[in-house]
């Protein structure tokens, strides 16, 4: 880039930053640090005032990236509990999700590389998605709207070095998953994901309510009886609950009656009870070569005849599912779903 352009770029950015607070719609900040979500060195991800950590029961697989999740609430604002669907967020709130790779999966103490921080900002008009890419020095992250990719590598739990071209989605791709009847929506901040027992045997939703971060949780709320997803990583829970939780977290953001994959008639959300909609004995609609010459989504007892598993086992963009955010095979997920289909009886 030539010097005059650079100068003009800086000039324009200067004006833009000065004027940011008088724009009718808040313009996105160029650097993650400008938001002040974290205190101290940014890479430590220490939540600042108004920011708090949350955990989900069943995480989405994202090429073995690990994630830390936070919510920022403006002072005196609260989440509104909902029994189903995403909680209601006050204007000005942000969901913050950091993606990172431990340098060595077996030795988290050896450090990590944060690759990306995604923000969902609740504005007057609705939700806005932004993604920030971390620099190699891990001092800050820069806004990127059109998507990007770059190499990352780490040592996996088995001691093997994995090289991956990490892909950052563009803002449209964010909506490829974050969509409910065509409207942008959060996915994970729901009862079924957040109804979770934390350390000290306390329920996460009750903690949020007690701390004044959330309101609307009924007094009658029973964490044991409330509908929630299983933590599929804990294999002592039932196979069926684990598998359904896995499918919900990894597929149902699109594959539900109001999601982008409603066209397929295949609904994998945990609430679905119709076996046909889950894929049992269901021929594909528009799978094309994604069918792998198999006839049905799920053939009970026969994982290797089930299209669902075929698509999980492949990385070719024309075959793989999910379409976005996965380039590696999730071996543990495949094993879980294989075992589940194997145990299904027709």
């Amino acid at each position: 880039m030539t010097a005059p352009f650079k100068i003009f770029g800086l000039f324009a950015m200067g004006i833009f930053m000065l004027s940011a607070n008088i724009l009718p719609e808040k313009a996105p900040k160029t650097l993650l640090s400008e938001y002040g979500y974290f205190s101290g060195a940014l890479q430590n991800l220490q939540p600042a005032e108004g920011v708090f950590l949350y955990e989900v029961n069943a995480p989405l697989f994202s090429d073995y990236a690990e994630k830390s999740r936070f919510i920022y609430l403006p002072s005196d604002a609260r989440l509104q509990y909902r029994e189903s669907g995403a909680f209601q967020f006050p204007e000005g709130a942000t969901i913050i999700k950091n993606f990172y790779y431990p340098l060595e999966a077996a030795h988290p103490e050896k450090g990590r590389r944060i690759v990306e921080t995604r923000l969902l900002l609740k504005e007057v008009k609705g939700w806005k998605a932004l993604t920030y890419i971390w620099n190699n020095e891990q001092t800050d992250a820069t806004l990127e709207v059109a998507g990007a990719s770059f190499p990352v590598s780490w040592i996996d739990a088995g001691g093997k070095k994995i090289n991956l071209e990490y892909v950052v989605p563009n803002v449209n791709q964010c909506k490829g998953c974050h969509s409910y009847d065509g409207q942008f929506t959060p996915i994970g901040v729901t009862q079924k994901q957040l109804d979770r027992t934390l350390a000290g045997n306390r329920n996460q939703l009750q903690i949020f309510q007690q701390q004044g971060q959330m309101e609307g949780l009924p007094a009658s709320f029973d964490p044991e009886k409330a509908f929630h997803l299983a933590d599929y990583r804990q294999r002592e829970i039932s196979l069926d609950a684990s598998a359904r939780a896995y499918l919900d977290a990894n597929c149902a953001h699109c594959h539900n009656p109001h999601g982008p994959a409603s066209t397929s008639g295949m609904f994998l959300n945990a609430e679905e009870t119709d076996l046909e909609h889950l894929g049992v004995g269901k021929p594909p609609v528009a799978a094309g070569r994604g069918s792998g010459n198999r006839k049905y989504g799920i053939v009970p007892g026969k994982p290797s005849e089930s299209i669902l598993l075929y698509r999980m086992e492949h990385t070719d963009p024309g075959i793989r599912m999910p379409e976005l955010g996965r380039q590696l095979v999730h071996e543990e997920g495949v094993a879980l779903i294989r075992e589940w289909i194997h145990g299904l009886r027709g």
């Binding site: 352009f5 324009a12 724009l23 313009a27 160029t30 709207v145 071209e165």
Partner: peptide, 22 residues
């Protein structure tokens, strides 16, 4: 006035990026 400038800024910041395979 600001909106085009904002768009331009975003665009310029995109052009400066070097890490991308696209």
């Amino acid at each position: 006035v600001m909106k085009p400038i904002f768009l331009l800024t975003v665009f310029l910041s995109l052009m400066q990026a070097t890490v991308f395979a696209q």
